[in-house]
Design a protein around this nucleic acid. Sequence first.
DNA 1: GAAACTACTTTCCTTTGGGATACCACTTTC
DNA 2: GAAAGTGGTATCCCAAAGGAAAGTAGTTTC
Lengths: 132, 132
Amino acid sequence: MSKKPGTSEKSEVCTEHLRAIHDTLDVLNGKWKISIIGSLRFGKKRFMELQREVEGVGSKMLSKELRELEMNELVKRTVYDTKPVTVEYELTPYGKTLETIIDEMANWGRSHRKRIMHPVNQLDLQDAISHL
Amino acid sequence: MSKKPGTSEKSEVCTEHLRAIHDTLDVLNGKWKISIIGSLRFGKKRFMELQREVEGVGSKMLSKELRELEMNELVKRTVYDTKPVTVEYELTPYGKTLETIIDEMANWGRSHRKRIMHPVNQLDLQDAISHL
DNA sequence: GAAACTACTTTCCTTTGGGATACCACTTTC
DNA sequence: GAAAGTGGTATCCCAAAGGAAAGTAGTTTC
């Protein structure tokens, strides 16, 4: 055997893994995208509803990130011809394939919060308080 | 019924969901953390190994994000007293609880790449080419 | 005819994330 | 004693991400 089989295979697997992760991060990049999807997970939302739920987002950023999600076919935008115009956003079937990731993140966040709220020692407690 | 029961409950669930997501994003924020964890997922790595695998990261950013991961008890740093000093990084048991999320992201990235490589129409193709 | 409502866009400005480069401490090798 | 290798830190600098605030368009309400 002229090349080490184990090492080089392992490295290729790792590289492919990292590339796949990077592809996902490309689609989800931006400060608000994951939160927006997390909010739309519970059904259609109008622009103002989203802005109220995704705490801290401004209208500029909200519309920008919604547009990017739309371009990636993750979110569908529907305009209704009502008195003042109504716009509804919802996850496409493709967008719903992200729900697994988002839900896993929510689960992890929940148990992480519990862990931080029941610190093993006083140093952790200091840390927890400073973060809120 | 003085208040709409469905609406208010749904909203609280959504708010809690978004808070949990936000907690997770806090821990994982920074351009390289998820890739670093994705790399350590395949076992212990030395500083230079990580820098070679996480494509594009500089030593400043790598050491900064490793330090932050260490502070959150997701990564363990071990110094060996060898000729030139050797440092190994590895996921802690707690860090390994993130593997589920990371692996889901890798899975999604893989199928997303396939989808983009086999576009439904020519417009998608243009999009795919422009992104690479 | 002024105000209010929705769904944005535009402009301007600040922050900060992060890249490039150089440097440090320590030891072995030449 | 100079170079090379490891695992970083310090410094400077800049593009881009993002926030605040005001403006737009079309319609309805008062």
